[in-house]
Design a protein around this nucleic acid. Structure first.
Lengths: 252, 252
DNA sequence: AGACATCAAACTGCATGCAATTGGTGCGCT
DNA sequence: AGCGCACCAATTGCATGCAGTTTGATGTCT
């Protein structure tokens, strides 16, 4: 109860947050792969706003870690290193354990129904594209976070979940979502039973196995090749950068 | 070893991040109290930049939860509710437990020396103003986070620590920092010994007691009076806002 | 005197314009 | 051919200008 107004937190005005939402979604559905360029002009044109607004939106997304901004350079979708990805999952595990700890035994019937409905949707989406499955799986976790009624927790869980999505598209192979769906169901039922310890454990292992399915080996050779491989070497050289490459993903 | 470049994460260019840093510092040192107005013009003038830049900086700080942006209204320093403050501390506890878990037994001699030096500085600052003590105490935690070499963890710990600072200036009385300093020392020595379980516990109780010293009672009557008290009542009215009232606490 | 309507100043929302930097292409030199 | 340099298009960095909204104040009516 007491549905909070929620969105007042950050997200300055309207146009900016529209762009942010669109880009976030495009990123987690992998329509925009890591490394994809995001020129201010194109964005502005695409969304019917000026560069000023597009720029502002990019700033917000950079603050969330979804895009990388380099001075005087075109913004790109973030390309987290393998280690950063692992770190993100570690943080996510702690945060989501906190979520289910707060939620265990405190959900209303309506909320449980909502969660089940969401997982049903995940189930139905199994036939569709990976992109949709991944998005729905992520949204399940965000939905849980929202039920804590803690705007801060929602924000952090959302951010870190999006970042984890990003890594999935970098390091993960085709993806298998079925087990994840079962794990979601198990979490819901443990939440309903109010078994705090168990649900924390379930969440822990759920996320851990997602991470392990994704981050198979600490070898970044696959993923966005050269870029990552060379990144560490350019670490103390002031310029980080894009070694020259014929095309590198742009969408008109 | 392998000191990362770190700051490439967000913080778009230069001027913007200068303003962000300045404001963050002003906020955690309580030079800017919660509720303080931050007009774009004044900021721009103060820092010798245009409104565009000031605006961008405010956007970043809003994304961090330090300022609140309301459409067509002057931005203000965030005024977290008591519940939000409690939530922030809960998250902080989990994040910092993760920090010390990763750090236990893995610190170099030099790092331990750096930590001790920092606490010495905290000690010396005991005679000074509260503002400096609070800042140093916060920076101790951020310093710890930085030693994990995990940019994401650094970012989240920093943000949440700043938010907790904000809270302190809202709900806490004059403040007593001595015990906190001792607790910092205890954490360092447990880290050096490599006692993972113990250091996690120390950190947990340290933060918990800081939170409890600060968030004494769930009565927001003290703090930024009327504003908070009335906030929940205006909750479902679409317009968030200020019920109309003769004066309602503002600072010029 | 108190409350309400009206108006001006202040401020934000946003687009556009100009200077500066970057990356790339093609030319000339070796 | 290979390498380097100069020039150009593309793009960002930032300031300014204008329109719309909010705030607060003045004036008027009861």
């Amino acid at each position: 109860m007491a549905a909070r107004a929620t969105s007042k937190t950050s997200e300055s005005s309207d146009k900016v947050s529209v762009i942010c939402r669109a880009l976030r979604r495009a990123i987690i559905e992998q329509a925009l792969e890591p490394g994809a360029k995001l020129p201010e002009d194109s964005l502005g044109e695409r969304f019917g706003v000026s560069r000023t607004i597009a720029r502002h939106a990019l700033g917000q997304l950079a603050a969330e870690g979804l895009v990388e901004l380099r001075r005087n350079r075109i913004a790109v979708v973030a390309t987290p290193s393998w280690q950063e990805a692992r770190d993100a999952f570690d943080i996510r595990i702690e945060l989501e354990r906190l979520v289910v700890r707060q939620l265990a035994g405190k959900l209303t019937k309506a909320q449980i129904a909502e969660l089940n409905a969401h997982v049903d949707a995940e189930d139905r989406a199994r036939g569709g594209t990976d992109a949709v499955s991944i998005r729905l799986a992520t949204e399940f976790h965000i939905l849980l976070a929202q039920m804590t009624n803690s705007p801060i927790l929602v924000r952090y869980v959302s951010e870190v979940a999006y970042r984890c999505c990003l890594t999935l598209s970098l390091y993960s192979r085709p993806h298998s979502t079925e087990c994840a769906i079962n794990e979601h169901r198990a979490i819901i039922s443990a939440l309903a039973k109010g078994d705090e310890a168990k649900v924390m454990d379930l969440m822990h292992h759920h996320l851990d196995s997602v991470a392990n399915r994704a981050l198979v080996a600490p070898t970044p050779q696959r993923g966005r090749d050269l870029l990552d491989i060379l990144a560490p070497y350019a670490d103390d050289a002031a310029s980080d950068r894009v070694v020259k490459m014929p095309k590198l993903a742009r969408r008109g």
